[in-house]
């Protein structure tokens, strides 16, 4: 159970969120030049050298992580043909619903996440309205809320799975 891919799924999502935050930083304020006249149509995006390196490294990391994630998912699906996880499922794959006990702890975790979201989103919206924040900080705020929801879910499930004894 402790090695169940669904238990680790929130950790994967948190890693992707952190990488997205780094990508967002590297893409912040690029110089864009768009030319559309009778002679040419072109668009040029210029990124600072340092940010360009950060972008390349973070993109490479992102796709490497994505490849490992998909391989792990494939391995899990091969080992659990009756409980397959789809990479493009609308329903969150981290839900543990094999039986009523697992459904119970999933419900508890989801309730905590819902409570968190109920507070976090209005607070984030209020901060964004009041403070003159740049697009990057608003993106960071959204990613922080997303990271928080996975953290809450992961620790709540882990608490129950860790406590159980043979």
């Amino acid at each position: 159970m402790k090695n169940d891919f669904r238990l680790k799924y929130p950790l994967w999502m948190m890693a992707f969120i952190v990488l997205l935050a780094i990508i967002a930083y590297s893409l912040d304020s690029p110089v864009m030049e768009y030319v559309n006249n009778s002679n040419e149509t072109s668009m040029e995006i210029t990124i600072e050298p340092a940010k360009g390196i950060v972008l390349l490294v973070s993109l490479a990391l992102y796709f490497t992580l994505l490849a490992i994630f998909l391989l792990q998912l494939k391995k899990y699906n091969r080992q659990n043909p009756t409980q397959k996880i789809s990479a493009i499922s609308i329903r969150p794959p981290e839900y543990l619903e094999q039986d009523e006990g697992m459904t119970y702890i999933t419900r508890k975790a989801v309730q905590k996440v819902y409570t968190y979201i109920t507070w976090a989103l209005p607070i984030l919206a209020t901060i964004a309205i009041i403070l003159p924040l740049s697009k990057l900080y608003i993106i960071y705020g959204i990613l922080t809320v997303a990271l928080g929801q996975y953290l809450i879910f992961y620790f709540e499930i882990r608490k129950h799975v860790k406590e159980e004894t043979e």
Partner: peptide, 9 residues
């Protein structure tokens, strides 16, 4: 027909 964890809970 339940998981070991459910018995523990």
């Amino acid at each position: 027909d339940v998981t070991r964890q459910t018995i523990a809970f």
